[in-house]
Structure formats: structure tokens, C-alpha cells
Design a protein around this nucleic acid. Structure first.
Lengths: 258, 258
DNA sequence: ACACGAGTTTTCGTATACAAATACGTCTCA
DNA sequence: TGAGACGTATTTGTATACGAAAACTCGTGT
């Protein structure tokens, strides 16, 4: 109990580190929907007590990234198909607003930043799936932040993260969820200050993303094995390897909240 | 009604009780923006330990209803004017979406429920200021829930609560924030399944609310004293001897923050 | 073989303990 | 009188303790 673990007293709250770590892991599909998140394990991994882990988990729960059930702990959320549609609808609604605002207020500097972002997307496209996913959302979050409306930006950020869950659950293995070309044309519309066009393009773009994420999916059952494989690889939890058979039925019923 | 609030466990999670209690107090303007929320005091009052109080506070923080600063605890949030505008913009955006959805999907039963709600508003109007405020937001939350989009409903609920803060901070003492007649015409537009009209009415309605809450306000700076007066009245803090002089320095500090 | 139970282990819910940070009040010294 | 120094009381941050609810284990009876 005399262990002095604290080095520099960083301004960043310790639970914030855990929060960001988990959030990133979820966004990166390193943690997959349904993955259990035991407080002890996480605390161990991050060198913190359950108190802080709980803080982080509750924050993630508030954002809809994890589910917590009374006495059985936290798990990465598994949004139902309905929920997924609701999320896309909300995104469309908010991002339309962002377009309308930005078409009026956007500056050359911001346009340049957007282009730089798309450039990063292009570089990662097809090469690094992980980076690709990461950048995909970043473009939308960047747009929302540029709109200057913090409230909207927070919601967009939240929804974009949740889309990562949806894609992990229902999307093709390597579906790039955002097309670079679509992002480019959105930037063009903004440059011309054509808000209506930008809004239309964004709506179309999100429709495409939703289509790739949801419509393509119902047929894809076999993938579950793949998913569990990756899961087992990532989590050095030895014994449960053979459970794929018992897991698949419930995975098929994506509406089931386990 | 239970659609949103279900975060609190059916087994009445104890922190949920605290959460709802505080939330209600804030919505009712029983707690005013800037009011300090010490963990011990709250825990005592609710018969729970700080652990649970913290849970509740963090939830409220996630919703933007309280601010927490590193080592100096929680306080009811004081949204800036900019933030207030952002909140109204987000509301307008989301509630427009709600109108569009509802114009298509609304049922006679739902229309009846809305009318019942407005009836309650009318009864309370002018009579009981507290109930009036409470019902004002409820109408909007009810609409959002009826839209079936849980995600949007959660956001609207959050934003409506935050509007209570804004009205407390910037609004006239007894400004009824929602006009019953405006709610009525919205219902009519929905009954006729005229989505465009409903959206337009809602936008106008929110514009009115925002106007009453904000535009009326910029000139009204001296009001801060008024606000603090109400604050002092409401909090039976005996020790300070109700010294106006002793309150004013802290008033200056609070004021600075915005 | 299978279903079922008792005991054990894990994980959660909540209170409490204690250190660090802050706020408060007092005393001293110009 | 006023400004700082210093000690004390409050309040927060985090870990830990402990009972209780699940999950798991394994042995038993049919």
C-alpha cells in the first residue's frame, strides 16, 4: 500500500485516459460489439482502480457505445437494426444543418483543412483498413466542429462513433464506409457556397454509407466465425476458443440484446 | 414516458433516483445555474454515499446540465449566450426532423395524447408557473418520443432540459416559454399530415421561444443581481447572515465566467 | 446422458477510508 | 488598514473493503 504509482500529475483526468482508450478501441473495431468489458480487467490493464474504470464506462454508456445491465456488467453495445436506422437519420438531420451553416461561414483556411483531411483519407484508402475507418469519421467530425456549433458537433461525434459499431456489426468486412470522391464533391459545394447542393450531397453520401452498412448486410451470416476469430486473437482469453458454434445463433439475431 | 428515462434501472437504481431528483430540481428552477452541488450534501439529502452521487452528477454533466471542474466540484451549468444559441439551433434542426417523421406516421391515438398534453399546459398556464415550465418542455419531448427515433428523442430531451437553464439565466422572471396556441397549431398541421407546415410552425415556435429567452435579454444586464437575489432566497444558507455585501464579490466572479 | 443443485469463483454495487487540493479563517507584520 | 503566511476545515480524487448477485464447477439422482 506504500506503492507510489504517480509520476507527473497530468492535467488529463485518469479516467479520461481509460475513456479515450476504450473509445478508440471501439472505433477501430479492436473491440467488437458484444465484447464484454469487465471492470477488473480494464482497471488492471490501465493501472487504475475500478472506480475510474466505472467512470469511463458510464461515459461510454451515456454515448451509447456500451451497454450496461444491472448486475452483469458492461459490454460494447450492439445496436439493433432499428437503432442503426435511427442513428443514420439523426446524423443526416444534424449534418444537413452543418452543411447549411458552413455554406455561409466557411473560410479558405477551413476548406484547405478539409482538403488535407480528404488527402489523408485517399492515402489510407485501400491500404490500411484501420486508418481508413478512422479517417472516414474524422472528416464528418471535422465538418461539424467547423460549423462552430459545439452542441451539434458533440452529437455528430457521438453518432459517428456509433456508426463504427454499426459497420462492425452489419457491414462488409472491408467496406470503406465513406467514399473519398463523395467527400470531395461536398467540399466543392461548400467552396461554391451552395448550401442546398452541399446538403443534398451530404444526404446522398450518408444514404450511401447507410446502404453499404445496412442493406448489404442481412445476407452475411458466415462472417460471425471470422468475427469471433479476430476476437479470440485479440483477447488472450484461452479457454473459450471452441465456442463459435454456440455463439452463432445469437449473433444471427442481431436484434437480441444479450 | 418510460421510453427515455429507462436508464434508471427498474430496480430503481439508487443513483437514478438522485439523477432524476437533481434533474427535476434543475428543470424546475429550484436549482439555478451556478448553484454549487457538493457531493456530501447531496448524498446526505438522498441517503446515499458519494459514489452514487458522483454517478448522478457525471450523468448530468454528460448531458450538459452541470459543469464539473477538476478539484472544485460540480455546479449547475451556466450556458453562455453562444451555447444557448447553439442549443436552440440544434433543437430546431432535430425537431424539424421530428415533424417530418410524425407528419407521415402519426396516429389518432397520438394526436389525442398531444391534445391531452396541451390541455394540461393550458390548465397550468398563468396559474402555476412551475407546472407551466414543466409542461412546456414535456410537449416537445412527447413529440420526439412519438417520432419513434430514440436517438433523436434522447437529444431533444437533453436540449429541452438545457433550455430550462437558459431561461433561468437569461429569461424574464415569468416568461412562459411555450405558447399554448403555438402548440395547438402544430398539432393541427400534424393532423392534416402537412409536414412542411408543421416544420414551419415548429421553427417559428422555437424562434419565438428563443426570442423570449434570449433577445429580450441582452439589454438586461442588471438582472444578475435579480438572479442572485432569487438564488439567495431559495437557498436557506443561514451562516452568511444574508449579507448582500458578502454575496456580491462572488457574484462578480460568477458573472465573469460567461 | 441429462437435468438439477450446492458450493465455489468471479464480477458487480455501494460504502468507506485516506490523501491531495482547495477554501476559510486567523494571526502577524509592515 | 491591509496583505500575506499559516493552520484548519471542507471537499474532491481514488483506492479499497465487503456483501450480494451472477457465472461457473462439479457431483448426484433419475
Amino acid at each position: 500500500m506504500s506503492l507510489l504509482k504517480d509520476r507527473g500529475r497530468s492535467a488529463v483526468s485518469r479516467s479520461g485516459v481509460i475513456y479515450r482508450g476504450l473509445r478508440q478501441a471501439i472505433s477501430d473495431h479492436a473491440l467488437l460489439p458484444g465484447d464484454k468489458l469487465p471492470e477488473d480487467t480494464i482497471g488492471e490493464r490501465f493501472g487504475a482502480s475500478r472506480t475510474l474504470v466505472r467512470e469511463a464506462l458510464m461515459r461510454l454508456k451515456a454515448e451509447g457505445l456500451v451497454d450496461m445491465q444491472p448486475n452483469r456488467g458492461a459490454a460494447v453495445a450492439r445496436p439493433s437494426l432499428d437503432e442503426a436506422r435511427h442513428i443514420f437519420a439523426a446524423r443526416a438531420c444534424l449534418e444537413r444543418e452543418v452543411m447549411a451553416t458552413l455554406a455561409v461561414s466557411i473560410t479558405p483556411r477551413q476548406l484547405a483543412a478539409l482538403e488535407a483531411q480528404v488527402e489523408k483519407e485517399r492515402d489510407a484508402d485501400g491500404k490500411d483498413g484501420l486508418e481508413s475507418i478512422r479517417f472516414a469519421g474524422a472528416f464528418h467530425v471535422l465538418l461539424a466542429e467547423m460549423s462552430g456549433n459545439r452542441v451539434v458537433a458533440r452529437y455528430v461525434d457521438e453518432l459517428v462513433s456509433r456508426c463504427a459499431l454499426i459497420i462492425a456489426l452489419y457491414g462488409q468486412p472491408h467496406a470503406s464506409d465513406c467514399a473519398v470522391s463523395e467527400h470531395r464533391s461536398i467540399i466543392e459545394a461548400l467552396r461554391e457556397r451552395n448550401g442546398a447542393q452541399a446538403a443534398k450531397l451530404m444526404a446522398h453520401h450518408l444514404g450511401e454509407v447507410e446502404g453499404r452498412a445496412l442493406l448489404a448486410q442481412p445476407s452475411r451470416r458466415p462472417d460471425i466465425g471470422d468475427i469471433l476469430g479476430r476476437y479470440a486473437l485479440r483477447r488472450p482469453r484461452p479457454a473459450t476458443g471452441a465456442k463459435a458454434a454456440s455463439e452463432s445463433p445469437e449473433a444471427g439475431r442481431e436484434n437480441r440484446r444479450r
